[in-house]
Computed example of a mutant assay.
Amino acid sequence: MKLVPFVKYTSCGNNFVIVDETEHSQLSEADMSRFAFQATNTSFGVGCDNLLVIQRCTPEVLTSIAEDRGYWPVLPNADQADYLFRMFEPDGEEALCCGNGLLCVAGHLLNRHGISAASILTEVPLAQPKVIQIGAQSDPFGGWVNLGHPRRTPNELALGGQEIPYSQTIDLYSQISIQFRAGDLRNVSGSPELQMKAHLVFTGEPHLVIFPDTDFSIPELADYIFSPSESWPVKDRRESFGTWLVEHIGQYLNHHYQAQFPAGINVNLARRQSDGVIENRCFERGINRETLACGTGALAVAYVYRHFNQSNSGNIDILPHRCRWHDDQARIRIHLNDAGWSLSSHPVMLFDGVYRLLADQPVGDPMMAISMSDDGVIT
């Protein structure tokens, strides 16, 4: 049995269990993948979106990852970053990057170690991981992550598309077809098919960006997707239809377009509210459902928007639609400077605890559940 100390953070409705391995290494590579289920599971675990692991960027750590995971043809340079950002999905697979997760890590480094800025290696599973800068302060937008400059999606994550002539970073998919059952769209259209165009950009994760008001063959569906929840009763058919629509589009793309997106694809549906303010709903490939917010998706939306619109705003505020059902002030601020595109928000620590990870216990076994000790520490 291993006792695994952790801390739980949230940013814009995204919740993360963070295991800090910067001073003491307790989890093997196999443990990280195994613990991901318990970290994310609400019935037999802690409950969160992803497990995050922070490690020192040292030759020893990189060598251990290379031996167990086989990610890299050449070992990355350990001198290029202070830390490693590792993110694991519920099934134990390692993901690439996460804006809100990085914001939470920045908050944790400040709160636990007094570190206000650091370099961190992300996109660890790719052949060439990326170094970015993160930091935190105490003001309302004190957490920040500079993700650098968006770029064209790597070939191992996306095929096909049609490069936009004026951009080396965005691919245009101009003829995406989403099929529905007969009658699914009867309130807005007699057709069982939705045609749309989408723009693909890589911001640490591959993201399709779609503006339904202009990119849908049935633009009326945009009003269902972006109906404000406070305007409708909880069980209102219009709100539930909009949520179902987002889920159907995301799942259809991930199931029927595997030839184009062999590793899955994140789908962002966005609507401009005013100059420099855009609303967004994001379907995440790793969890196969809509998430309350997405930092790399927010950046993708802002980046595509800037390519097609002249904006007078120095910042772009992305309003995470689902998160704002619960927190109407939630937003992710995007800022462009010479060093790249930065995200800022306000991560919040929820609690810390210790998990009893039983050796060689099968994933999902209820014996791996947590309990609360008398002093309030989760064990």
Rank of each mutant, 00 (worst) to 15 (best):
218 I>E: 02
218 I>W: 01
218 I>N: 07
218 I>R: 11
218 I>D: 03
221 L>Y: 01
221 L>K: 03
221 L>D: 00
221 L>F: 04
221 L>M: 13
221 L>E: 02
222 A>V: 05
222 A>S: 15
223 D>T: 10
223 D>K: 09
224 Y>E: 00
225 I>Y: 01
226 F>S: 06
226 F>R: 07
226 F>L: 05
227 S>N: 11
227 S>V: 14
227 S>A: 15
230 E>P: 04
231 S>W: 11
232 W>S: 13
232 W>P: 08
233 P>G: 03
233 P>V: 00
234 V>Y: 09
234 V>P: 04
236 D>P: 08
237 R>P: 05
239 E>W: 08
240 S>E: 12
241 F>W: 12
241 F>A: 14
243 T>Y: 03
243 T>C: 10
244 W>P: 09
245 L>I: 12
246 V>T: 13
246 V>E: 05
246 V>R: 07
247 E>S: 14
248 H>R: 13
249 I>P: 04
249 I>G: 01
250 G>A: 12
251 Q>F: 02
251 Q>C: 12
252 Y>F: 06
252 Y>D: 05
254 N>F: 04
255 H>L: 08
255 H>N: 12
255 H>Q: 13
256 H>N: 14
257 Y>P: 08
258 Q>F: 07
259 A>N: 10
259 A>D: 10
259 A>I: 10
260 Q>N: 15
260 Q>S: 15
261 F>E: 06
261 F>V: 07
261 F>Q: 07
261 F>L: 07
263 A>M: 15
263 A>P: 07
263 A>V: 12
264 G>R: 10
264 G>I: 04
264 G>D: 03
266 N>Q: 09
266 N>Y: 05
268 N>D: 13
268 N>A: 09
269 L>S: 04
269 L>N: 03
269 L>E: 03
270 A>W: 00
271 R>Y: 01
271 R>V: 03
271 R>Q: 14
272 R>L: 13
273 Q>D: 11
274 S>Y: 01
274 S>Q: 13
275 D>K: 06
275 D>Y: 07
276 G>P: 04
276 G>S: 09
276 G>A: 11
277 V>A: 09
278 I>E: 00
278 I>K: 06
278 I>F: 00
278 I>V: 15
279 E>M: 13
279 E>D: 14
281 R>G: 00
282 C>L: 04
283 F>M: 11
283 F>V: 10
283 F>Q: 04
284 E>M: 08
284 E>S: 15
286 G>T: 05
286 G>S: 11
287 I>H: 02
288 N>E: 14
288 N>L: 06
289 R>G: 14
290 E>I: 01
290 E>Q: 13
291 T>K: 14
293 A>H: 03
293 A>P: 04
294 C>G: 06
294 C>W: 01
294 C>F: 00
295 G>N: 05
295 G>V: 04
295 G>W: 01
295 G>K: 06
296 T>S: 14
296 T>K: 06
296 T>Q: 05
296 T>I: 07
296 T>H: 06
297 G>M: 12
298 A>S: 15
298 A>P: 01
298 A>N: 05
299 L>C: 14
299 L>M: 15
299 L>G: 05
